[in-house]
Computed example of a mutant assay.
Amino acid sequence: MSEESKSAPTGVRQQRKEQTRHELLAAARRVIERRGLAATTTREIAAEAGVAAGTFFVHFADMNLLVETLLDERIGQALQLGMDTVPASADLVGQLVHVAGCLYEGYDDEPDLARQYLAATLFRSGPHGPAQQRIQQFQDWVTERITEGVGAEAIPDIDPTLAFTAYFGLYFAFLVAGLRGELERPQQLALLAASLHRLFRMEDGA
């Protein structure tokens, strides 16, 4: 750290740190667009951002965390949009399918990043990365909807956490199938809806 940085007020240092992080993310998007994700290195990203190679690791532990961060903003926006625009008349299955559809759209915007982001979501062990925090936000919303459904006797009594695990497994399987080009969006949503009706023992269209 330079003497100037050391002597700068804490607020100024934090602002500079956030600016550098922003520049690294913007540089990463440019390099990935030119070279593709697989060929992109941390050194290239740092050079594109105009910072020392080691500065990358001040902000991101590795490329997986960078990719999580790149995609998380888009996925976060998609999740929030889904939760905010659930049709008032939708039953539990309709609500869950609606949010899943918004998330599928978010992943489709950057499918190459999405594939690596999903791998990070599944296998990263740390509890504080963007992927884990986003899953927790997703789980909290879904379990609240399931709890409401049980309370209103709209669905049979079911443990909300176990139900979320089952729902997430279905959602994820159809997401991966979509990213692999095996299912079109209408098929993804139709299969998810049919599976959830069976999970919650609801009649289709109930």
Score class of each variant (00 low, 15 high):
G76W: 01
P9F: 09
Q188H: 07
A8N: 13
Q188I: 04
T20P: 00
I158C: 03
Q116S: 10
P127A: 09
G178N: 09
P87F: 04
I155P: 02
G205K: 05
G169K: 04
A49M: 08
I45F: 02
M83G: 00
F138A: 02
Q14M: 15
T55Q: 13
L189K: 08
I155W: 01
F168V: 02
R13F: 08
E105G: 04
A90P: 08
E18R: 13
A90W: 03
A61W: 04
I32D: 01
L122S: 12
I146M: 06
I155D: 02
F57V: 11
H59S: 03
H98S: 06
F56K: 01
M1F: 09
G82E: 00
A173C: 08
Q187R: 15
R43D: 14
Y171P: 00
F174P: 00
A78T: 07
A38M: 09
L162T: 05
G205Y: 07
L65R: 07
S89T: 15
I32L: 04
R185W: 00
G129E: 10
Q188E: 11
T85F: 01
D157N: 11
I158K: 03
A193M: 09
R180S: 11
S5D: 12
F138N: 05
A28C: 06
Q116F: 05
A190C: 11
I75C: 03
S7W: 14
E23L: 05
G106P: 03
I45P: 01
